[in-house]
Design a binder for these strands. Structure first.
Lengths: 187, 187
DNA sequence: GCCATATGTGACACTCGGTGTCATATTTGG
DNA sequence: CCAAATATGACACCGAGTGTCACATATGGC
């Protein structure tokens, strides 16, 4: 069960993230130092890094264990399912869990350092997905192509969603992208 | 024409890159400081940054203006050409210009900081490609999907090529990937 | 309630990548 | 040959991130 420790930890993390986002919105990401964030939350710079590994990560909240989780879901799917359907389904479900605020995404998209961090996370997830697909018996090249294509689909979705200001339904968009991008070689 | 200045500049860059790669191979990327590289090439740390914007860039040699160049090539292609063929042709030609050594690629692939830098460069290129495609009259979502898919293809190619130790023909691999990944919605 | 242990925190020093600046060569083009 | 452009070294500086130590506070078993 969850003790006092974990609860306070999560509270502090939330507090820290909140203060940070305020400052980012106010003066911009690059113009805000970790020291500023820490002071705003009433703690030392050193302690900030006990809650977040990097300054960028404060923006990505709970999205941290994505790779691990997605790969696991793929691994535990019915083995006879077609790879593209598998990716579509899993990532669709994952996309549903993101009640991503438009603000955070705009910030990420307009800040090179954050965009880079996003690319890193996606790439890390892609690596794990490739392994999961290979475990299902897919040849390496095909697994690479499929995983990279799926990542490409999600990227296009995010951008299109941003373009519309977050008005259209994100899941519909995911379905559209996955349908449009379905590679010829996948059944 | 090319004066003395440009020639010496290129020579110094090459010297710097050579020394750097030696050191990276010897002790690893992270264990080598910019000061080390500069000293090995007989100059100050400050001067290193007059030749390369970041420590990572010393590995990527001439691959710097990729985005700009590729976008320009796309823009100057016959307008009636199908987008996927266009991307295929342009990136194929670009891939041909890379006499990428296996060693450099291995280094990149096994060093997170370098892998990240590669992702950045690819993403920057992708952005420009999307613009170029949009200028050709492609709807934004489709342009995003196509550009991201093309990037995905190249990534898979690079990885497969590495997997084989650089033995197979890279251009054939590019053709295979582009054929396999061709999205359904592109004619 | 008590105590040994684990965990959180601040403070401080340090490394390293990267930038601004200035003074001083060296090169270039006229 | 001379004035303007460019290259260099030296130095100071910033900010992200880490190691360490001393001290406080919480935890779980008794």
């Amino acid at each position: 069960m969850e003790g006092l420790r974990d609860r306070t930890r999560r509270a502090v993390r939330a507090e820290l993230a909140g203060r940070a986002l305020d400052l980012f919105a106010e003066r911009g990401f690059d113009e805000t130092t970790v020291g500023d964030i820490a002071r705003a939350a009433g703690m030392s710079k050193r302690s900030f890094f006990r809650y977040f590994p990097t300054k960028e990560d404060v923006v990505f909240g709970e999205i941290e264990v994505m790779g691990e989780q997605v790969a696991h879901e793929i691994a535990t799917r019915p083995p006879q399912e077609q790879p593209w359907e598998c990716l579509h389904t899993v990532l669709r479900g994952w996309e549903a869990r993101i009640n991503a605020q438009v603000d955070a995404m705009r910030l990420i998209e307009s800040t090179p350092a954050l965009r880079t961090r996003l690319l890193q996370k996606r790439d890390e997830a892609r690596t794990r997905i490739v392994i999961a697909l290979a475990d299902r018996g897919m040849p390496p090249l095909e697994a690479d192509l499929a995983a990279a294509a799926a990542g490409a689909a999600l990227d296009a979705v995010a951008r299109e969603w941003l373009r519309t200001g977050g008005t259209v339904d994100r899941l519909t968009l995911v379905d559209t992208a996955f349908t449009m991008l379905r590679p010829a070689f996948l059944t």
